[in-house]
Design a protein around this nucleic acid. Sequence first.
DNA 1: AGCATTACCCGCACGC
DNA 2: TGCGTGCGGGTAATGC
Length: 246
Amino acid sequence: MDVFWNRTLANQTPSSFAQRMCGQRILSIFRRGKFLVFQLTKDVMLIHLRMSGDVRVERSLDANGVPQKPHKHDRLIITFANHARLAFHNPRKFGRVWLMDDPDSVLAGLGPEPLDPNLSPQLFFKKLQAHKRQIKPLLMDQHFLAGLGNIYTDEALFHARIHPLRISNAIKREESKALLDAIRLVLKEGIRRNGASIDWVYRGGEFQNQFQVYGRAGDPCPRCGAKIERIVVSQRGTHICVNCQK
DNA sequence: AGCATTACCCGCACGC
DNA sequence: TGCGTGCGGGTAATGC
């Protein structure tokens, strides 16, 4: 195991991480919100990419049996007994890795999964009613709903024709239904296209080609032709059609 | 009290 | 060259 940036490990020192990880096997891998969850033999490993990066799985040795050089922004590399390795690549150094026996202390506060069928339109409407906050920061609040980020929130609000500064408990029942549908639409589309390549930190996705408003300030709205505007909402760039989104 | 908002911060590298 | 920007979220201060 190699740690290239100490703060990558959220709740372990490099030596305690290595010692504790040694001998464990990966039993399953899944996702909860924006966390990658690795169920190990004894513990659970969590990875959060934050603003940048990806996880690579590769062979630890090249064709000549020489250890492969780490990439420039690799922060953690875990090498397995079968000479496979997992590299946590995280250019901005915001990402974190946890190793713990009970991940609830990190995951317990997360809101529901937007794609969970148990999240009915009725329940979603009730949840919106329970808060009096600007809709965009509320949607991005991982305690309210788990998994939505800046891109998907802007796109979903555009699809649902809702202005990001609308107050959550003033959103009508029909609008909330449209919003939930829109959230699910953009998430599924993003997943189908392997995410978006809008930045140097992640290439490979194609969802950016489907953006209606995100990153398109000055372009005509694909729905009405009005000029797309960029505003700032809770310190995040926000893209809207003021003609379509009320 | 508890919720909501705002400002700031964190590494890095890109585009203009 | 310098400045603004960013697929995120924690913390602290402030406001309601």
